[in-house]
Design a protein around this nucleic acid. Structure first.
Lengths: 124, 124
DNA sequence: ACAAGTACTTACAATTTTGTTACTATTCTA
DNA sequence: TAGAATAGTAACAAAATTGTAAGTACTTGT
């Protein structure tokens, strides 16, 4: 970490990417979850290799915890830590903002579709 | 955009990556800025190609605005839009959280350093 | 006349992230 | 006795992101 980094950069390093935000979000709202359970419930099909890697990163950063029951067949649970829970402060707002943005851009696209159709009707 | 996406995913698509969060953060707190001015002030040296691309993405998403004064030599300013200003709701918290995390992980590293030194003194 | 600055773009290269496939040992279920 | 499920890992491949170098047309300052 450079000295000059803003908090933004640091937070993005931790939460950015295709999966980490989602995993955190899931674990913030559900009980501790087992590996394959998480895999099934995350939409968009995450591979086990990727899930494994992302979980380790989050664990290394102290946001989640790995609980190994040391049995066969293996049982491992992942649970959010108290520190991980503090990410809710911005994840909640990001979620709301994202939903709002989705509504906006959907209507923008719809408008573009209508304009395109009109142009087609006129010149097509 | 898939139907099943959470707000988190959508927001991350927009703000994620090495530069976009920083650029937004900069424009949230400063007056409209010119291209090379932004380039100079962003720490970590962003290339003009990358800056150009990131600015266009943010413009496409309606978060910033490009004002072309149409003069020679060229003068173009980038300014945050009212909609872009709404990202402050989570960026502010992300910034605070990131600074806090930095403090934490710095002290963790310091602790690791002390422990390593102690082990060296005992066995080295 | 020459260097420096303006806001970029193009062609290309390196790096990082993400994904696929196949595999492990063991137990439970049909 | 075959098949599924458990939590992963290793070797490899593709895709996305980020970067570098050079160039554009024009003006200002030395």
């Amino acid at each position: 970490m450079k000295e000059t980094e803003t908090g933004i950069e640091i937070t993005l390093e931790i939460v950015c990417g295709k999966w980490k935000g989602l995993i955190l979000w899931k674990l913030l709202h559900e009980k501790p979850m087992r590996f394959n359970q998480l895999r099934r419930e995350i939409d968009g099909e995450i591979s086990s290799r990727i899930l494994s890697r992302e979980l380790r990163k989050l664990t290394d950063d102290g946001l989640i915890e790995r609980i190994d029951y040391e049995m066969v067949p293996p049982k491992v649970e992942y649970r959010i830590t108290p520190y991980g829970k503090t990410t809710a402060s911005f994840l909640t707002i990001m979620n709301e903002w994202g939903l709002e943005h989705k509504r906006m851009s959907t209507s923008k696209k719809e408008m573009a579709r209508l304009i395109n159709k009109q142009t087609q009707d006129e010149f097509g």
